[in-house]
Design a binder for these strands. Sequence first.
RNA 1: GCUAGAGUGGCGGAAUUGGUAGACGCGCCGGACUUAAAAUCCGUUGGUAAUAAUAUACCGUGAGGGUUCAAGUCCCUCCUCUAGCACCA
Length: 829
Amino acid sequence: MYNHRELEQKWRTKWKDGFVSYRPESTNSTTKYILVEFPFPSGAGLHVGHTKSYMALDIRARKYRMSGEDVLYPMGWDAFGLPTENYAITHGIHPRVATEDNIKTFKNQIDALGISFDWSKEINTTDPAYYKWTQWIFMQMFKHGLAYQDTTQVWWCEELKTVLANEEVIDGISERGGHPCERKSLRQWMLAITQYAERLHHDLDQVDYLDIIKRQQRNWIGLSTGARIRFALDETSSLEIYTTRPDTLYGVTFMVLAPEHPLVDVLTTDEYRESIQQYQEQVSQKTDLDRQQEKEKTGVFTGGYVKHPLTGKDIPVWIADYVLMGYGTGAIMAVPAHDERDKAFAERYGLDIQPVITEEGELINSGEFDGMQSEAAKQAIIQVISDKKLGQEEQQSKLRDWVFSRQRYWGEPFPIVWVSSEAYQQMQEQNSDRLAPFEVSRERDGLTEYAVTVAESELPIELPEVESYLPQGLGEGPLALATDWVNVWYHLNTGKTVAGNVECPGEGWVKALRETDTMPNWAGSSWYFLRYIDPTNTEAVASPEQIHKWLPVDIYNGGMEHTTLHLLYSRFWYKFLYDIGIVPTSEPYQKRISHGMILAEGGVKMSKSKGNTINPLEMCEAFGADALRCYIMFMGPYDEAIAWDTHGLVGCNRFLTKVYHWGETIIAQPEQSNIDTEALHRDTHGLIKKISEDIEAQKLNTCVSSFMEYINIWGGQLIGKSTFETFLTLLAPFAPHLTEELWERLGHATSIHTSSHWPEWDETALVSTEEDFQVHVNGKMRAMITLSVDTSEEAILAQALEAAEKYLEGNLLKKQKVIRQKGIVILVV
RNA sequence: GCUAGAGUGGCGGAAUUGGUAGACGCGCCGGACUUAAAAUCCGUUGGUAAUAAUAUACCGUGAGGGUUCAAGUCCCUCCUCUAGCACCA
């Protein structure tokens, strides 16, 4: 073993003292923006899973730098969020203090891995200088009508007097304290991501994401084309449904409404009123997730009927919780013959099942449409429906608007104040630019208040200090307790605020209340990659020149679990910023890749409770950061989940030890005694090609095995110094410390990592003067012959026949063929 | 249930996209060094049969069928596992 501890420590110190710089140089024209998802700095410290993606993208970043490109590879902290706040609640430590400690730990750990992050670009979402711009972007969305308020169901714990997140409630019991929880309606800020659904769907065509990621996003957005159809209730009113299968319209045997549907009351007859109310009550205590997970479909008849738009038949109306208010119109036409869920429901409650399409896709029992193919029938029925003004074609999305507020402390405050209706009216008359295009209002103490933004110059609205991170209010966050912060004087003309605990400052100032909700932790991460570009800018999100230089991100790595939330949210915010002219492209990330999990030994998930976690720092200490880097890359395909095996890490340490000793031997020998053969030349250029292409293709496991193969053949031999340097250069992104050491001892004064000398391969070097031919007889490889490249086909064939003579047994050849570029001779008898 | 992906030695995995299956690493076994152990180095290592022989033959990539001179790779049927979504009309 070589002394990795001393060697790596030496270079960590030298690098930190300025021997290398990972800051992009502004002179270069070709750029690469490489991005890994930034971590939430938890108290548990860096997880080995984090290191995989940092290392893999570090290899890319280093390779690009060595190829002379201008590389941006930054890191920061996604530090708002629930765990820190809960830690604050239980330990009484300010979240800011806990966050700072955790960041320090993370940073030390990352530095020990030899990752070439440009720390001059470091950002922290909880830094007011950062969240100033999170608030600024929200402010623009508010002004453009993308932010509004709506009522949603949340978990409420009476004992804790607080709103809880879904993940904090297990089987209706709070995770902290074990108290019972209930569902409760609450007004929340919402962001209208659904307005971008179509673009989020279609623009995936423009980008290079892993197929599985695109598919998953499309599935989540769930764009579908169908029809909105009205079923008459009486002469004046009707029930609207949305269906993707208008071709099955004649198969409708009942209707199902979501229990919360506004027409339920109207349709319910006295006879059924009690059971309907009972059912509604039951359902209101369930989350959407619960409702969707139930195996048994339940529902209740309302007693009411609607008229079929084409046949005029009376159709009974039911309510059931498998129909959700949030999708479509909150009501469906049930076609039990052709829909599994409707079928299960019909069978349970003994409802009619009427088939209208044959296995061949031909319509039956459908009046004038009988005999049509279902695709054609879809169009025909939509046509008839819209001619009769009973409905129209419509596109729908499964996507729901984004619930954007939290009744929590550790998040970004909103740049919003609530003013009286008189004040609001005045602002409207003045055409103030601090209003939303529509009214956003709330009732408070019998009065209506309106949401308006503060002036841009007021940003950031900083989090106030509070006594308790656990609120004692009724659905309000801990910020509501900071009454001096909440009560302000607001200037109608300028949007400025001053503390409210003084006398009225004068003309134009009105009393106002700050919004006390905070933003979810998805907010800060929805645009952070923009801030890395220009993290200290006080005038804008980032300077337009820098934005143009770096965006879009060339490659973005993150976990599969972020595909439907973070990745979609950030694309949405970016598209909005594109629409208001801040960014130059409509998509933020050119390429998206995903790393597979590192599982514990035995192939199960690592978890603290099971005690099977791997601490990356301990591994560095024992085997070296270089060995750890090589091993994690070597484990297997980048995007697959693979079990940890410390023995494998030992093997990589052995490999690097061989490299080290080989280097020492070469350094010690006079140059003239070194060998330089054609085979060495060919293998070296083969390696350059292999490593260059495999890094590009994210096949880092085979890179490492190629290095091992090369050293198995040439290791220990006195190869030419420049050839050895080529090998070191290729290995440098994988093992930055060891290669730097040998590079220095080979007589270089500058770092191996900042020199623009990534080697190029010579195709002609890869071609040999001799060629191998496999001789296949009846599809089986029977002999191998080596011939000079200028051998004619006839001669090859003759040689092959001779070599494989005993397998031919004198039989007549049915087929003979030479496939030159594959090096195969085919003989069939 | 839907969608996608994957099944290769004792283990992690490789295979230029139809052309020597098992690269590379781990582990195991044997050997060297050592008083001994660890570390290190060298060698063997899919299975069966056979041999003085690392001569040779056959079988082998979840199961079964098919296409082809030739299938881990392509097609059909089935099984198992993993991931994401989960009653989305």
